[in-house]
């Protein structure tokens, strides 16, 4: 099963490219201090230096900060926020979805109404309001992103749990006298792991886009250099210095693209039948 899975994943050209991109971004984040030992907020050259001048690959910004250094250090914030907020959202989504799917009845109805509500309200506006009110920090940003991201996953998990709970192996577990909690955690959830993993990988991409949009609006963590902040602070000088907003934007685009490709590759590898049908 695992070997087939890996083979199916590796045969998908897009997925391998995505994996390579994300690997590079992770290496960048890990070795940021080695690649660019100086603080990305420090002035290291002339302001408004175009790319490939003054010893700076991607030029400098209005205050003479190295754009390339900012991009390398910014990878940390993007990945950190993307991963933690996704973990939190997966936790909420799986919890609510599993309870709603397993117990059903009025509790399930209530939880699903609640979930639908969170899908209806304008996501990004809520994130902006929460972060603005609780002042921008890593914690408030992660919390806000997690709060608006769990709903689709909860619906997905509910559907999976609902279809699994009437299967024989679950009934066998009930007959054996296993508790509801044990059945959910040990019998049902491991069997709906693949759609959860696929959505989680796509959620990381969405979370990175959300974080970058927040920092673009000036609602990023003020202590962390981030890609969205770089684009946002350079937009007023777009006419004079295109490179200041161009390169950080490319960094976001490439990272999100890589994560999306991985997500699709995983999806195809987990559902080989679907894949064959699609290409046929």
């Amino acid at each position: 099963m695992t070997r087939d899975f890996l083979l199916a994943f590796a045969r998908n050209k897009g997925a391998v490219i995505g994996l390579a991109i994300v690997a590079v971004i992770i290496l960048m984040a890990v070795f940021a201090d080695v690649l660019y030992p100086q603080d990305p907020w420090d002035m290291v050259g002339l302001p408004f230096a175009p790319p490939m001048t003054d010893g700076m690959l991607m030029g400098s910004d209005m205050l003479g900060r190295d754009i390339a250094a900012g991009i390398v250090h910014g990878a940390r914030v993007s990945l950190l926020i993307g991963l933690t907020s996704t973990l939190a959202a997966v936790f909420i989504g799986v919890l609510i979805g599993a309870i709603a799917g397993y117990y059903g009845g009025w509790l399930g109805d209530l939880l699903m109404r609640f979930t639908e509500l969170f899908q209806t309200i304008p996501n990004f506006v809520l994130v902006v309001v929460i972060v603005a009110i609780f002042t921008p920090s890593l914690t408030s940003i992660v919390t806000a992103i997690a709060l608006v991201s769990w709903a689709p996953l909860a619906r997905l998990v509910r559907g999976e749990v609902l279809s699994l709970r009437s299967r024989e192996f679950v009934q066998a577990a009930v007959t054996c006298g296993q508790s509801n909690g044990t059945i959910i955690v040990k019998q049902i959830l491991p069997n709906c792991l693949s759609p959860i993993i696929v959505s989680a990988s796509l959620m990381v991409a969405t979370a990175i886009l959300l974080e970058s949009s927040l920092s673009f609006l000036g609602l990023g963590d003020p202590n962390a250099m981030s890609w969205g902040f770089m684009v946002g602070s350079a937009r007023t000088v777009l006419r004079q210095a295109w490179w200041m907003s161009f390169f950080p934007g490319v960094a976001i685009l490439v990272t999100v693209l890589g994560l999306n490709l991985i997500g699709e590759g995983l999806n195809d590898a987990f559902n080989p039948r679907l894949r064959r049908k699609r290409t046929a």
Binding site: A205, S213, F216, V231, G249, I252, V254, V256, L257, N260
Partner: peptide, 18 residues
């Protein structure tokens, strides 16, 4: 479509302006 789906919306705006 894959590229447009991964691009931050505000950045597309800035690049179109450029």
């Amino acid at each position: 479509a894959l590229l447009s789906y991964a691009t931050p919306i505000y950045w597309v705006g800035l690049m179109l302006v450029l």
